[in-house]
Amino acid sequence: MGKVFDWIDNVFHVKKPHRRFLKRAILPDGLNYFYCLGGAAFTSYLLLLVTGLLLSMYYVPSEHEAFSSIVKIQREVHLGWFIRSVHKWSATFIIVFILSHTLRVFISKAYSKPKELNWVIGALTLLFAFASGFTGYLLPWDQKAYWATEVGTSMGGTVPLIGKHIVYLIRGGVDLNGATLIRFYSMHVLWFPLCMSLLLWAHFHMIKRQGIKVNL
């Protein structure tokens, strides 16, 4: 493994400029297990990414076939129930982990200068996680998904003046239908993961630059 990597690195030269990052000692004294919560959230994110890629092989984002494709994943596909469960539970746990990570950062005052930008990035990541959860909830296209999204999107209508247009924009029409499903699918599998990956890269890059703050 190392030999193969060295052979590639002879041309690419990625090892040398990254040595400072790869072999750095970033762990200060006074850490405890609460500092693992961010990593746990990231692990959930990776699990979601991998299982999501697998599920997209069988899921059909169409008005007529979405639900039956879910049934097929649950009943026919090898380990389909397992992959879908991992996706679902990781989605639950990523919210739990991000929130507790946020709490840890808040308690240890890790949001304070000079790390305020990392707090902003983290907050944006949380928003994207919520949005992914919301859009993913519609995709099974059953009664629960439909009415949850019906209620959720109609909340946008309470915004003064432009509320109506916000609802139309989110739904891709006046009513919740196949157009909404495609819209949510695209958001869920393309836009949000892309945005979250970029945000997480920035998040980790800043940790590498600024270190971990221990202030308890």
């Binding site: 991998v50 596909v77 389909g80 397992f82 992959i83």
Partner: peptide
């Protein structure tokens, strides 16, 4: 393990 599960998942049924 991940490689085996992935291959098994992607292998068509029926």
């Amino acid at each position: 393990v991940v490689a085996i599960i992935t291959t098994w998942f992607l292998y068509p049924t029926g």
